[in-house]
């Protein structure tokens, strides 16, 4: 495999999506086990330990890497399930585990000293001081940066933490709140994204067609949006719902929109960022194939000196893109 300066890290919620990602040119694929140990704990998604071992074998055969996200916070009294996930990841031959909980990092380091550790975005390490501390304490080798930093801040941070590698989100769903620190969904549903691995759990979501033709979206007992039947939609998350405040009604946190940092690929290469991450383990294999393929081409073109921005509007929430915090104006 060519030594691209920027590794493309791609999501897979099913074995089929994993194959699609490898086929489309992913350098690495990240997956999770089918339980609360990962932050995309959706029904019918993710891998059994047996499927994970097969996935590692297939990925390695193709010359690519497989990372396993164990990026929720172990529930007090149930830590054994998270420890088992780390053990299973090591046993499956994963190239790295992506962890968020400090206690779990300590466990992984002590139990599997040769297992490569990546810091999940859920850990919310946003400064050189925090990252250096985690690298020194646990041997973390790569950190996935929070989606709160501008391109200038990413550049400065990447230089400051070397040789710890940085990985940034390039495309997909976007938390507008600091990741791993948001209790909005659990305030409404009783299930914490941090410990149950799911924001807006499907069992709490309801779409209802009103007599007038509008669609009402509810999470738990809370109305989070209402719009004409044909209007573009996003995920039924609180941060992309419509509310009233200060005598106005609208998307007070964020419109339904997805992150697309493709514009910034040349800047991110220049910044020395090691890896670009595509969000979307909950998405279908068609999404994975399309987005990974476009980003593969975009990265290769940027490395070669030319560059075109892919059009991926149809894959986005609300059919709309934002460069998020990379562009300072977003703040």
């Amino acid at each position: 495999m060519t030594a691209s300066p920027l590794s493309l890290v791609c999501p897979a919620g099913t074995p089929a999506a994993l194959d699609a990602a490898v086929e489309a040119g992913a350098d690495a694929v990240y997956c999770g086990f089918a339980d609360a140990t990962n932050a995309r704990n959706f029904p019918g998604l993710n891998f059994s330990p047996v499927e994970m071992r097969a996935a590692v074998a297939r990925t390695h055969k193709a010359g690519r890497s497989l990372y396993i996200a164990i990026n929720t916070f172990p529930r007090a009294g149930e830590e054994a399930a998270w420890h088992r996930a780390v053990d299973n990841a090591a046993e499956a031959g994963a190239d790295a585990v992506i962890l968020a909980d400090l206690g779990l990092l300590a466990y992984a380091q002590a139990t599997h000293p040769s297992l490569r550790l990546h810091l999940s975005v859920q850990a919310a390490a946003s400064t050189p001081e925090a990252i250096r501390y985690l690298a020194q304490t646990f041997g973390v080798q790569r950190v996935v940066l929070p989606r709160v930093l501008t391109l200038a801040e990413v550049t400065e941070l990447t230089a400051a933490v070397a040789p710890v590698e940085t990985e940034v989100f390039a495309f997909g769903g976007m938390c507008v709140m600091a990741e791993g620190r948001c209790q909005l969904s659990s305030y409404v549903t009783g299930q914490s994204p941090n410990t149950h691995g799911v924001c807006s759990p499907a069992g709490a979501v309801q779409f209802r067609r009103e007599p007038g033709g509008d669609v009402t979206a509810r999470l738990g007992n809370v109305t989070i949006d209402r719009h004409p039947a044909g209007a573009p939609a996003g995920y039924p998350t609180l941060c992309k719902g419509r509310f009233r405040a200060n005598a106005t009604t609208g998307y007070l946190f964020e419109e339904p929109t997805s992150l697309n940092a493709a514009d910034h690929i040349p800047g991110l290469i220049k910044a020395g960022v090691r890896a670009l991450k595509i969000e979307g383990r909950q998405r279908g294999r068609a999404y994975v194939a399309r987005v990974v393929g476009e980003f593969r081409r975009a990265i290769d073109a940027a490395v070669a000196g030319g560059f075109t921005v892919p059009d991926l509007a149809s894959e986005m929430e609300g059919g709309r893109a934002t460069a998020g915090a990379y562009d300072r104006r977003w703040r």
């Binding site: 007090a76 909980d101 925090a130």
Partner: peptide, 24 residues
């Protein structure tokens, strides 16, 4: 975590905005 790192090695308190979810 910036403050957690900066305070490590001396007595300090951890606030409710730091993720402490389990005994480990």
């Amino acid at each position: 975590l910036t403050a957690v790192a900066a305070c490590a090695g001396r007595p300090h308190a951890i606030g409710p905005l730091v993720a402490v979810y389990n005994p480990s």
